[in-house]
Design a protein around this nucleic acid. Structure first.
Length: 800
DNA sequence: AGCCTCCTAATTTTT
DNA sequence: TTAGGAGGCT
């Protein structure tokens, strides 16, 4: 059972792609000596080149934000292949996200000028582990066709366990248990190796529940995400022969985002690399923001100790942001101890300072950001007009998005929210998937429980309990239990009829699927139809129903790229993509976490207030470590910006319905003064609001002046005012000559045909000062400053 | 079985 | 404030 032949490793049925017909290495061997001049090396800076060319031995590539780490990583792979150091299927390249893996594949292909079909071991930790685990499943008590549970299934299982153990779910919720167990798995602790220090977890019941949970998974022939890694680590640790085989097979190992690895992933990598130690880890300790999920910054900090003699290459030249933005980011991150230390620099000159602005409350902040975005879009800010696609609002917590959504809805500014529930996490998708899972395997008890009464079949708690009892006493699956219930007439009336129909359907689907697996798309549609699931949503009058039906259609469409249902189900649990690339230009709203790895010309960072960012909870729970992670989050946020970075905070914010006065974030204080421009909001520094307290009436966020005064007396606030006071009264934009001279206003009149570089041709509908209301032929109605408008005739337009 | 009302908790979420 | 879950009522 532990014999693996190499064909096994070359095979890549999971990816639908076999080993390349002609290994790249053979083709390219001759290029080894000439690698220095290989075209794919063009444009690498010395550090990148070093990271690419140091093929053997451990390498730590410390790649700061925007320093071209993907370029270095992919070029390194191209180099490995071209020099004949490894064949495509001998390189293990691990990422965290499918997106990153895809991008890497594409770019390697691009570098080599051909598609790289044969890189079966380039993928996420999880997808690679699934592949491995399917080969060795029996070693951890699973069958090779085990299913992968998602979080929802996990929680439902835990709920059952908690109830079975007579634990008060109110005081000890399933989510908590799930978190505890996840944590243990992240640290590679099995029920057997769980240290005694954890004995008190979950009211002292944690360890036993962990054991029960794992047993339950085994009987279900299932595992959760954490198990994928954990099982492989266990297998590697207990079976030297298997480990040895993979150690020699994977001749080179590359790891992306190494700072985000948890203990299990770290052990997995260390085991695999122990032989040749040809491991190249890429990461940035300053961008470690997933500690709460088990990531250990320590892994990257310790690399040189783990791999003595490791070559450390620092990528510090930044190709993304202006010098001011980099300096601001550096200034903030300097507050962290225990860094490996990097200093980003750029050849780029000029650029705006990071802009800082305070607001009265969250609504005003949203209003201001909206106006600012419109100004940038039309070019009013004195820069070239920007597309909405080039702007992003990055928030600490998703509830902050709402204020912006509300505001943008009001002013009709198109936006796109990234995050939220993923496609495969939606209720209707999970339900449909449960039907598919049952059609493939009737042993899937969790799937059965999920859909047994969806749509309603008159099967309530009591009926389900009967089925469960029958299944347990006969030692069979729930579907079998249901069959017994039907045959014995244990469930009567409407429910009995409904159950009989369901069982009959399941059998029919199962048989038909076996007979004609290739008609899986029609089958899927049929299953949803015959089960009554589609009808259920058709009859549903709630506003979500049409969207859900739409999603179901999407799901069926997604089947097209798979050969059968089985294959689809195997992959889908690992693919949580939902890239919706709509054509319309939109502002992006997302969390800071979600923005890692992305970049935007203009970035807004609102809500920089102590308690919100850095988050109070983070600091309460993890103390200094938590604060440092928040600071790295700030660093990530600032370094997303290419040209303009705007940080803002509000003096008052509604928190859980209660108005609270907020202090500017301590990170505001940490921004280096020389690289920050304080924008004076008219309402705050001009004293506008101060004299109008009465106007707030009952609406006033703060009723008494004393507490408001407190808000203005915080260290951060004082510092703000001090900075503001250093500036002479004219607004910063005026000082820079960016304000448009109103006297220069145009000679346009209503009805004129005009041209705008971004929006194209249009007709002037109205005039307000220096702003023109223009109805653009393509872009619709826009307010644009006349400075950016030329008469259409000059641009060669043919008037109608 | 399904609706309604009360209670409680409330970050971040690559797979 | 609000959303989701649990428990009670019809």
């Amino acid at each position: 059972m532990s014999s693996i032949d190499n064909d096994d490793l070359i095979d890549d049925s999971d990816d639908g792609a076999g080993a390349p017909k002609v290994p790249l290495s053979q083709r390219a061997m001759g290029a080894a000596l000439g690698a220095r001049s290989a075209p794919y090396m063009d444009g690498l800076n010395p550090a990148q080149r070093e990271a690419v060319e140091t093929l053997n031995g451990p390498v730590l590539m410390l790649a700061g934000a925007g320093t071209g780490k993907t370029k270095a990583l992919t070029t390194r792979i191209a180099h490995l292949l071209t020099t004949g150091s490894a064949r495509t299927n001998e390189i293990l390249a691990v990422t965290f996200t499918n997106k990153a893996a895809r991008e890497m594949k594409e770019r390697v292909a691009g570098l080599l000028g051909q598609t790289v079909e044969g890189m079966p071991w380039m993928g996420t930790f999880h997808s690679i582990c699934v592949k491995l685990l399917r080969r060795h499943a029996e070693l951890v008590g699973l069958k090779t066709n085990f299913t992968i549970l998602d979080t929802d299934d996990q929680i439902r299982l835990m709920k059952q366990l908690i109830a079975a153990n007579n634990i008060d779910e109110k005081r000890w919720p399933a989510r908590l248990l799930s978190g505890v167990i996840d944590n243990w798995k992240n640290r590679a602790w099995t029920p057997e190796t769980l240290p005694s220090s954890e004995a008190q977890a979950f009211n002292g019941r944690g360890p036993e529940l962990y054991t029960q949970y794992q047993d339950r998974l085994k009987t279900l022939n299932a595992c959760d995400f954490g198990d994928l890694l954990l099982h492989m680590v266990t297998i590697f640790q207990q079976h030297d022969d298997i480990l040895a085989k993979y150690q020699s097979w994977f001749r080179y190992i590359l790891v992306d985002e190494y700072q985000d690895t948890n203990v299990a992933q770290y052990l997995w990598l260390r085991l695999l690399a122990a032989g040749h130690k040809n491991i190249c880890c890429v990461g940035d300790d300053d961008q470690s923001i997933y500690g709460w999920r088990g990531a250990e910054v320590g892994n990257i900090l310790r690399f040189e100790k783990d791999f003595p003699g490791a070559k450390v290459v620092r990528l510090e030249q930044n190709y993304r942001s202006t010098a001011h933005i980099l300096a601001a980011a550096s200034g903030v991150i300097a507050g962290n101890a225990d860094r490996l230390g990097k200093e980003l620099w750029t050849e780029a000159e000029g650029g705006e300072k990071v802009r800082l602005i305070g607001h009265w409350d969250g609504d005003e902040e949203a209003r201001w950001v909206g106006e600012e975005i419109e100004a940038m879009q039309s070019g009013t800010r004195g820069m070239a007009p920007k597309s909405l696609d080039d702007m992003a609002i990055l928030v600490r917590a998703s509830h902050q998005m709402r204020a912006f959504e509300d505001r943008f809805l009001t002013i009709g500014l198109p936006y796109r929210v990234i995050g939220g529930p993923r496609f495969y996490e939606r209720l209707e998708i999970r339900d449909a998937m449960a039907y598919f899972r049952l059609a493939v395997s009737q042993d899937d008890d969790l799937a059965f429980e999920r859909i047994v009464n969806t749509p309603r079949r008159g099967l309530g708690d009591k009926a389900v309990q009967t089925i469960q009892m029958l299944a347990r006493t006969n030692g069979v699956s729930l579907v079998e239990g249901a069959r017994i219930a039907v045959e014995s007439g244990a469930i009567k009336g409407k429910g009995g009829k409904g159950l009989a129909e369901l069982v009959g359907n399941l059998d029919r689907w199962f048989n038909q699927l076996r007979a004609e697996a290739d008609t899986h798309i029609e089958m899927a549609e049929m299953i949803l139809e015959e089960s009554g699931y589609t009808t259920m949503w058709l009859n549903d009058k709630t506003p979500e129903a049409p969207g859900r039906l739409e999603n179901l259609k999407e799901l069926v469409k997604a089947l097209e790229s798979f050969e059968n249902l089985q294959g689809f189900l195997e992959h889908v649990s690992l693919i949580m993509d939902n890239d919706t690339d709509d054509a319309e230009e939109k502002v992006t709203i997302m969390t800071l976490h979600g923005a890692k790895g992305l970049e935007f010309p203009a970035v807004f960072l609102p809500g920089w207030e102590d308690g919100l960012f850095p988050s109070q909870r983070s600091m309460d729970e993890s103390g200094l470590k938590g604060l440092e992670e928040e600071r790295r989050l700030a660093y990530v946020g600032i370094t997303r910006a290419e040209e303009v970075c705007t940080i803002s905070f509000a003096a008052n914010r509604r928190v859980y319905g209660q108005w609270q006065s907020q202090l500017p974030s301590r990170f505001v204080d940490e921004l280096p003064e020389d690289h920050v421009e304080v924008l004076t909001a008219p309402g705050l520094y001009g004293g506008g609001y101060g004299g109008m307290s009465g106007d707030f009436g009952g609406q006033s966020p703060l009723e008494d002046k004393a507490s408001r005064a407190d808000a203005y007396n915080s260290p951060g606030w004082k510092r703000m005012q001090a900075q503001g006071a250093l500036r002479s009264k004219p607004s910063p934009n005026e000082a820079k000559g960016l304000v448009i001279d109103a006297t220069a206003v145009s000679s346009f009149t209503q009805g004129d045909r005009v041209f705008h570089t971004k929006f194209g041709y249009g007709t002037v509908m109205g005039i307000e000062g220096d702003k023109l209301d223009i109805e653009f032929d393509k872009a619709g109605a826009k307010k644009v400053v006349s400075k950016f408008i030329v008469p259409a005739a000059q641009a060669g337009d043919v008037p109608f």
